[in-house]
Amino acid sequence: MKFNNDDMLLYAVTDRAWLGNQTLDEQVEEALQGGATFLQLREKELNDDDFFAEATRLQKLCEKYHVPFVINDNVDIACQMNADGVHVGQLDMEAGDVRARIGEDKILGVTVQTVEQALLAQERGADYLGVGAVFHTGSKANASVISFEALKAICDVVTIPVVAIGGINKSNVLELAGSGISGIAVISAIFAAKDICKETSELKILTQQVVTR
């Protein structure tokens, strides 16, 4: 599945920390009902068999809502299950190697923090960039925060979509207006909510104001 900038608007990243009494499948479907436009499955603890089974279920949900579905880090499982693509960080497999593995038709996202990393990722075949953390975040304890100016500089030098990530919620998302981003990626802002569908819908409306200004 190829995608366009509109698919980047509200990018949901899963996290089991917020499951409570729900299953991940239930939470993801609520987010999709609320208008999430992209889904990344992020799993650090599951064994490969359980990961594959979970990914297959979520892939079907995303197909139902016509939303791109990518796997975080695990290129083997992404290839095995024919996911729409893969997202990798700076410490994971190098972007060019990932592109060689997944082929030209799959989506490749890369996390970057500098203009140099952004240009290299684009050159090596990235379809979009995740840039952050733009605010302090509890989802990734070791994530360093980058400035608005650094985010804007990255958006200015690349031709592919940029998604801001890290600590974004309804109270601060409008601060990203004018940066040039195509959307935001969130974890707890959606999945920690009591009403995931409602929270997703409200966050999406705010984000539309950010990317259209």
Rank of each mutant, 00 (worst) to 15 (best):
E202S: 10
D105P: 09
D49R: 15
R101M: 14
Q122F: 13
V145W: 03
D15A: 13
V158A: 08
V86C: 04
I146K: 00
E63R: 11
S139F: 09
I184E: 06
E104K: 13
Y11L: 08
E123S: 15
A193S: 15
H66S: 11
A36K: 02
V67F: 04
A189Q: 12
N47S: 12
G89M: 06
H136Q: 15
N169K: 02
L58G: 01
Q33A: 13
F69A: 03
E175I: 03
I77E: 07
S144A: 12
K140L: 14
L39C: 09
L129A: 11
V13E: 15
V145G: 07
D92N: 08
I165L: 00
D49F: 13
N47E: 10
R99Y: 03
V86G: 10
T37N: 04
V210M: 04
Q59S: 14
Q90T: 08
S201R: 12
T14W: 01
N21H: 15
G125N: 01
G132D: 10
K152T: 06
L174C: 10
G178D: 09
E199F: 02
G125S: 05
A100G: 02
C155L: 03
S182P: 06
K170C: 07
V70D: 01
A12P: 02
T200Q: 04
R101Y: 07
N169E: 09
C62Y: 09
E94H: 15
S201L: 15
E29T: 03
A36H: 01
V210C: 09
Q90G: 12
